[in-house]
Computed example of a mutant assay.
Amino acid sequence: MTQRGTIFTLGGGGFSMPEVRPDPERPSPLDDLVLAQVARPRGAGGVPRVCFVPTASGDSPEYAERFHAGFAGRAETSVLALFRLSDLEGRSLREHVLAQDVVYVGGGSTANLLALWRLHGLDVALRDALAAGVVVAGISAGMNCWFEGSSTDSFGPLAPLADGLGLLPGSACPHYDGEAERQESFRAFVGSGALPAGWALDDGVALHWRDGELLEAVTERPGGRALRVRPDGAGGAVEEPLAVRLL
């Protein structure tokens, strides 16, 4: 069954990586586009409620501070920390995520994110939230987790991880131009069959999905690329550029 809902998958950029934008002092256009998907904001003062999920970074306090600063004045923010569930003050994970307008998933270890989400049932709660109309966005590990598989450095060197949530088709590779060996290794994983055909995104680029279908690729910096990477039938892979809209 196709997963209902709206998902933004960021290869890099957003509030996490202002350095990739032409003007790092301005709010992220990718984050602005995510907020624009909220038709009826539920936050105080008519702003969206946005919850940050920093599981992949071990619930890094510094990452949470960057999130609060990135959305200050334009969203009612909260952080869902699986290492500090007492912060929910008696609410369940499901209740908390269903009360949001946007859930934003941070980067870090994709493998650790998936393991902890499944242990706590957050993967199921987020499926329910998506079906109920909550917009989901994620960067790096927060991009990888929604696909069937991904290229990850969760175990040290870049490696294929064919254990995603499968809400989106194929595999994923973030930071395609921003980290050494990303491009070569992802092509090798896809070409060998270790990962299915997938999507590679430069820093500052995102894919906008609705009900499991790709709507468009967008970038917050000139020249940002989105590519479809497929096996070539001879043990290698080919890259097919997608049209990318500059925000």
Rank of each mutant, 00 (worst) to 15 (best):
T2G: 09
G5I: 01
G5P: 06
G11P: 03
G11W: 02
G12D: 12
D23Y: 06
P24R: 07
E25G: 11
S28G: 03
L30K: 03
A39W: 00
R40Q: 10
R42Q: 12
A44E: 15
P48S: 01
R49Q: 08
E62R: 14
Y63H: 13
A64S: 15
A72W: 12
G73Y: 14
V79N: 13
L80I: 09
S86I: 00
G90V: 04
G90S: 07
L93P: 03
H96S: 07
A99G: 12
G106L: 05
G107L: 03
G107T: 03
N112G: 02
L116V: 10
R118M: 03
R118Q: 14
H120E: 14
G121Q: 04
V135W: 06
V136D: 02
W146S: 09
F147W: 08
E148N: 09
E148T: 11
T152N: 12
F155W: 15
L158D: 09
L165W: 13
L165H: 14
A172H: 05
E184I: 01
F186D: 00
A194T: 01
A200R: 03
A200P: 12
L201F: 08
A206P: 04
L207F: 08
L215T: 14
L215Y: 14
A217N: 13
T219L: 11
A226L: 12
R228K: 14
G236W: 14
A237G: 07
L242T: 02
L247I: 00
